[in-house]
Amino acid sequence: MEELGAGLAKVGTGVAAVAIVLGLLLLIFFIGARAKGRLQSPVAIVVFLGPAILLLAYGLIVPAFRTTVGSFQNASGQDWVGFANYTWIFTAPGNSTFLINTILWLIIAPVLSTGLGLTLALLLDRMRRESVSKSLIFMPMAISFVGAGIIWGLIYEYRDPSKPQVGLLSQVVMWLGVEDPPNWLLWQPFNNFLLMVIMIWIQVGFAMVVLSAAIKAIPSDVVEAAELDGATGYRLFSKVTIPMIRGTLIVVLTTIMIAVLKIFDIVRTMTNGNFGTQVVANEMYAQAFVAFDVGRGSALAVVLFVAVIPLIVYNVVQLRKERAIR
């Protein structure tokens, strides 16, 4: 009971903090609204945009700048080493593993998540009672990586084939007649794919929900017109549905790609990057926080965000096009 009281008090602090911040904001609004005439817009811009810009500057822009500078320094950040850290990334023996794995992740996980999400969205669109399925498929999104690690540990667990199995995957393939299932997480190179399955498990729900909504948003007269023209099944899909939701598809794909690039939790909890499953983001964490080589860690971070830039540029170009039309 004591614990409960203390716990509620903690939650109370949280609620109080929210109340205080909202109260302050109302006060600022009240004062800001007094601005008249030409001052009106500048005051509004400062009040509305200021907090966000400040927080972003402190929290993301300055650190990004520091990281970039740090990537040209040595392990302890005391000497300049030019491009040595970058040379290390791309030439050191063994590093090709995490570079290749990251590229595999970047292609396979987003494409499969989006593809499966789209398939489900299309199928669901034809079902009556879709909400239960939707919820259950979406559910993994609500689970932490720590939790996901435990859940999938129960699936990939290896036991000697002569013993009762604890891992579901081993048991299933044994039921299917395989006598000696591999030790899944050691099973190169397929273990990479097994880790991607976890990411896909988490992301398909997101892709499905967004794409399903986009499909529903296709106006019925477009579909009807196409049907009057005799389009059905695959033709309807490729000539009407896909073009109509192209934009959404791209957004889903890029969102998942960005998430995949930054992914390190799954690899860290499942294999810690061993057994040929290392990826750039986990190598970055290991270099910066385990081996304390800030130079290499920073350089890997820069490689990551340079890798994402094309995705962002592509999205920005699309956005600008859209805005221009509007």
Binding site: F65, R66, T67, T68, V69, G70, Q73, A75, S76, G77, Q78, V294, G295, S298
Partner: peptide, 11 residues
């Protein structure tokens, strides 16, 4: 100015 994370570790 030095910008490096580790430089600040030292400081």
């Amino acid at each position: 100015l030095a910008g490096g994370i580790a430089a600040t570790m030292l400081l």
